[in-house]
């Protein structure tokens, strides 16, 4: 029975992987300096990247201090600088319409209001134990590395992808939300993409963070200007 189980599971896994592998983007590592690692697919462990290695879209690249990696794909090059992290599938052009759809979907990630785990289950299992957390996935620095990766996407012309990566990073690494300069950079990016309402909403959200006087003044000015532009558009 177990054999049949394994065969069936293998067939299903092949079936499930098939359409996605067909779409996989392949990158060749042209140059590596310092420590650069990858997290492949759903793996839990990082591997070191070597020059000449072939990477695919499901890989996440992470560079340490004083490190960088240069990739090539179909004659094009992409450089990931130090202290950055980037999923390779995001190195692609996304239409402004798709970006808008994705931003809307981002807004509706909430589960229905009449439902909550706490309301359904009051029982608490387990003890209060001091847990050792992994030093990568929950690290503020790792979130910032992802934001750095997003910046480099934007600088390489993939502004729409950069916005998506930034949004996902803020969700998965909430502590990065307090980094006001980074957030203003991505809100400005929205504005450059012509998404005034989305930029305005982001500026307003950033205002709830602790801000310096300069940041506050700068934000107020931006909000005023964008509000005016939104009103005149109507």
């Amino acid at each position: 029975m177990k054999k049949i189980n394994l065969i069936v599971t293998a067939i299903i896994l092949i079936f499930l992987y098939m359409p996605s592998s067909a779409q996989t983007q392949e990158f060749i590592v042209e140059k590596v300096t310092g420590k650069v690692s990858i997290l492949r697919g759903t793996d839990e462990n990082y591997q070191e990247v070597k020059s000449g290695q072939i990477l695919n879209g499901t890989d996440l690249l992470v560079t340490d201090e004083n490190s960088f990696i240069q990739l090539s794909r179909n004659g094009g090059r992409f450089l990931l600088k130090a202290n950055s992290a980037l999923g390779l599938n995001f190195i692609k052009a996304i239409s402004i319409n798709d970006l808008l759809l994705a931003l809307t979907a981002e807004e509706v990630r909430s589960i229905p209001k009449n439902n909550s785990a706490t309301a359904k289950n009051t029982a608490v299992y387990g003890k209060k134990i001091g847990l050792e957390k992994n030093n990568k996935v929950n690290d503020l620095n790792f979130g910032l590395k992802k934001l750095n990766g997003a910046r480099q996407l934007a600088e390489s012309g993939y502004k729409e992808s950069a916005v998506l990566v930034a949004k996902e990073t803020y969700r998965k690494y909430p502590s990065t939300k307090s980094r006001v300069d980074e957030r203003i950079y991505f809100a400005d990016l929205l504005l450059r993409l012509g998404l005034k309402n989305e930029a305005l909403s982001e500026y307003s959200d950033i205002k709830s963070q602790q801000l310096t006087i300069d940041q506050k003044n700068s934000l107020n000015k931006k909000i005023e200007e964008v509000s005016l532009a939104v009103t005149s558009d109507k």
């Binding site: 997290l39 759903t42 839990e44 996935v137 929950n138």
Partner: peptide, 9 residues
């Protein structure tokens, strides 16, 4: 998240 995985995907 790190209590259950190293991979944010």
């Amino acid at each position: 998240a790190s209590l259950i995985t190293n991979n944010d995907k």
